[in-house]
């Protein structure tokens, strides 16, 4: 079966469809994703932070605040590419309607990547403003945070869509969140630095995606060093290497 190369125009139309619906529901939809980081900031930054000495010369709130931007983007894109995508695929039959138009199955998947990235960008921008108000942003490089969070969103959308393309029932997402998303959240250097641990802990962390995203958001908020280019490159290469696999698998679920 021949796959078609995704068309950006078709992908844009799918993105536009999602944006149309988002415009109607953005306030209730935005709230949970927006509020959640506050709980972490309050509970861990202020609560736990009262018992923690400085980490890398930063107080604890400063240490975790910008890092939570990365995990926030991960959560936004992961929910979008798992539950939301599955509902559109199986229950709403939204994709069945779209593949009968000049928009092909391949375009749909790419459009959803872009939309997940956009959601990560929207949440991330709002959250960045809050961090700025709290005095946790110290560098003009922070202006690069929204486009970077878009990239992080696309990366986690590719991973989430890959899982979605493989499962038959919505119940399987519990595995994805428990075995993939949650460990990434806890062990990617958001709450404690992993670099100081003995081998192989830092090496394992280096192999995982959120670790690099955390390095970059933390650096952009406080003034980056050129080392983060390695992290950005890691994310770009990982995303590009994986991106076409879900496209192929999702096509098989829509076209027989």
């Amino acid at each position: 079966m021949r796959m078609h190369w995704p068309s950006l125009r078709g992908a844009f139309r799918v993105w536009q469809r999602d944006a149309t619906i988002f415009k109607k529901f953005w306030k209730p939809a935005l709230m949970p994703n927006f509020i959640e980081p506050f709980f972490y900031l309050a509970a861990l930054g202020l609560g736990l932070g009262a018992f923690v000495r400085e980490i890398d010369g930063q107080d604890y709130l400063q240490f975790i605040g910008p890092a939570l931007l990365a995990s926030n983007a991960m959560f936004a894109a992961s929910f979008e590419s798992t539950y939301n995508t599955f509902v559109k695929l199986r229950f709403g039959k939204v994709y069945d309607a779209i593949v009968a138009t000049p928009v092909n199955a391949e375009d749909i998947v790419v459009g959803e990547y872009l939309w997940a990235g956009t959601r990560a960008l929207l949440y991330g921008t709002a959250f960045t403003l809050v961090l700025a108000v709290l005095g946790l942003v110290h560098s003009w490089w922070a202006l690069l945070l929204p486009p970077f969070l878009f990239l992080v969103g696309v990366m986690f959308s590719v991973m989430g869509t890959l899982f979605t393309s493989l499962i038959k029932s919505i119940d399987f997402y519990a595995y994805y969140f428990t075995l993939v998303v949650t460990p990434l959240f806890l062990f990617s250097g958001i709450f404690f630095p992993v670099d100081g641990f003995p081998t192989p802990v830092p090496e394992i962390a280096w192999m995982t995606p959120l670790y690099h995203a955390v390095n970059v958001t933390r650096a952009l908020a406080t003034g980056p060093s050129p080392e983060i280019l390695v992290d950005v490159a890691w994310i770009v290469i990982f995303t590009a290497a994986l991106a076409m696999l879900p496209v192929r698998l999702m096509r098989r679920r829509l076209i027989s």
Partner: peptide, 18 residues
């Protein structure tokens, strides 16, 4: 397979964009 999240008119507008 109408888009249940959209109104009657929006269904046609969004579809036209495809």
């Amino acid at each position: 397979n109408l888009d249940e999240e959209l109104t009657v008119r929006e269904n046609l507008l969004v579809y036209g964009r495809y």
